[in-house]
């Protein structure tokens, strides 16, 4: 568990201090959340449906305000800050792109936020150009977003947020409907954002993706944070995964099935362990 820290002089970019929120009386969607995420961190938020993941991230961009406790984002208390102001700092890419996309063409979709944030003309065209290329959407630039495939719409939603360069990027289930290559692309994009000192929060059911690419995991269950730490340590903990209804990554299953100690999420380590097992046979 994360220990709570005093508010004075915090260095954290995102800070939750004893935050609770309830949509209907008597049932908390999130309860007593304490959490801190530093500048430049890449964090996965894992947990079953209804665990409170979406409620939690809506507190980061201020769509929801804590009913008790407080949330500080980039030094601003979200209770005193408008969603519009926070939006410039926090880019949220929704799980379902259809909740986000509305423009007539792919190009206009990407331009929307840039125009809204008053970027200069030449900067807008430079950024739109970058986004179309980066996300493989150049050939669809004049198409209506709803004619794109599910995976392509997902990429467009991502492009239209990343183009305005927010300091914090929140990705809600970014790997759904994405194939393997696009997952690798997404991973390298996260790495790149990270190298630019951006903070990336990835809400995901894709435990394989978290195990392969995200160093820190926060595991939620029934509205609470039940674990927060190194991904390898958490994702190889059988009791923890079970209590959060998470299915272990395939390499962890394999570690357990082969009784490897300690179990691992790393491909190379499994390969060398199995190699040792095989050499044992020959000897």
């Amino acid at each position: 568990m994360v220990t709570s820290r005093p508010f004075e002089g915090v260095e954290e970019l995102i800070l939750f201090e004893d935050v609770s929120y309830s949509y209907s009386p008597g049932r908390y969607a999130i309860e007593h959340i304490n959490l801190s995420i530093d500048k430049g961190e890449v964090v996965a938020i894992l947990g079953e449906n209804g665990a409170g993941k979406t409620t939690l991230i809506k507190h980061i961009n201020g769509l929801l305000k804590p009913q008790s406790g407080f949330v500080i984002v980039s030094g601003m208390n979200t209770k005193d800050t408008t969603v519009a102001t926070l939006a410039r700092h926090v880019g949220l890419v929704f799980q379902n792109p259809d909740h986000q996309l509305f423009a007539e063409t792919v190009e206009k979709e990407i331009m929307f936020a840039l125009t809204n944030f008053n970027f200069p003309e030449d900067e807008i065209s430079r950024r739109v150009d970058w986004a179309l290329k980066e996300f493989g959407l150049l050939e669809y630039k004049d198409r209506p977003p709803f004619l794109l495939s599910g995976g392509e719409r997902k990429r467009l939603a991502l492009a239209s947020v990343l183009c305005y360069d927010p300091q914090i990027v929140i990705l809600d289930e970014p790997t759904t409907g994405q194939d393997y290559r696009q997952k690798l692309h997404l991973a390298s994009l996260i790495k790149k954002l990270n190298s630019e000192s951006k903070t990336v929060v990835v809400v995901t059911h894709d435990i394989e993706f978290a195990a392969d690419f995200i160093p820190r995991s926060i595991i939620m269950s029934k509205g609470r944070v039940i674990a927060d730490g190194d991904s390898e340590e958490l994702l190889t903990n059988r009791e923890l995964l079970m209590s959060a209804s998470l299915i272990p990554p395939q390499l962890v299953e394999l570690s357990w099935d082969l009784a490897l100690n300690p179990p691992t999420i790393h491909f190379d380590e499994i390969v060398s362990s199995v190699k040792k097992l095989l050499e044992g046979k020959k000897a």
Binding site: G47, E48, N49, A51, Q95, N96, G150, E173, T176, G177, H205, I207, S245, L246, I247
Partner: peptide
């Protein structure tokens, strides 16, 4: 892709 939006346990 019927399980794309499901958590792992429900997907399973």
């Amino acid at each position: 892709e019927p399980t794309a939006n499901l958590d792992p346990a429900s997907a399973q």
